[in-house]
Design a protein around this nucleic acid. Sequence first.
DNA 1: GCTTGCCTTGACGTCGACGTCAAGGACTAC
DNA 2: GTAGTCCTTGACGTCGACGTCAAGGCAAGC
Lengths: 146, 146
Amino acid sequence: MRIGMRIGELAARAGTTARALRYYESRGLLSARRTDNGYRTYDEDDLKLLRQIRTLQDFGFDLEETRPFVDCLRAGHPEGDSCPASLAVYRRKLDELDALIGELQSVRAKVGEQLTRAERARDELAAEAAVPGGPEPACEWGGRTR
Amino acid sequence: MRIGMRIGELAARAGTTARALRYYESRGLLSARRTDNGYRTYDEDDLKLLRQIRTLQDFGFDLEETRPFVDCLRAGHPEGDSCPASLAVYRRKLDELDALIGELQSVRAKVGEQLTRAERARDELAAEAAVPGGPEPACEWGGRTR
DNA sequence: GCTTGCCTTGACGTCGACGTCAAGGACTAC
DNA sequence: GTAGTCCTTGACGTCGACGTCAAGGCAAGC
């Protein structure tokens, strides 16, 4: 008979909360034995499994994407990524990340351009205003004349 | 008296839906006059404002972040980013994007490492299995002996 | 008149990964 | 015995930007 921990301890050791573990269980990712009094009890294998989930979560995998890793560990493989299905998830994730990073870089460039353009426009207005005898200021500072 | 469009037309011209416009209105970002029969009616200025919102949304700005741009246009400025508050949002967004891109690149690198490592481990197992007289296979393919 | 299509407000649904609260049982320390 | 800390299930709340449905009004074409 293994020592076993209760939900709070397992959660703490994995850096998460009891609520999260119950949620994982409800999703079929984590299973628990029960003690006589109805408490959930876990062993070191569960900790390993949970840590696998947490690592992937930290990488931004959503829960469903961790399932192949969990199934792999449950099947008795030494690592969650010892199975082809897990490798497929890795590869898909890499593609997603590359696509996302590319989009964000594109957006970054566009926003940067907008900022530069807007600052230039502002500076040109300020320069005109500073020239004695320059063009008429529309109102106090670019406000609509209405 | 301006021509004016109704909500469906404005939405179509901005590439969005009537529901979205009502939502923007509920958030105080878009205002509408009403015709006698209670229909919302919009003019070209509203289209410009809405396009400003959509552009920023496409950049991944959330709605609250578009407010300074909207206020700027409403104040009569020629562009939504003619005001300091809008420039501040641009700068903050650039910082957010840089941070996010950096994190994603870090995650990408880690996931890439994991994939490489897992593939190597798999290949090593396969190589061992292929060697006649090599180390004993734990079970058919890495399964737990239990 | 009748259908069709646009409009109105109001309200509930969506998605993900839990947070939070309620009501009560179990066990430990004092 | 009782205070304190853990555990149980169940159920509603969160966040953002709408989607979707319901029930009904208004206008145009036939």
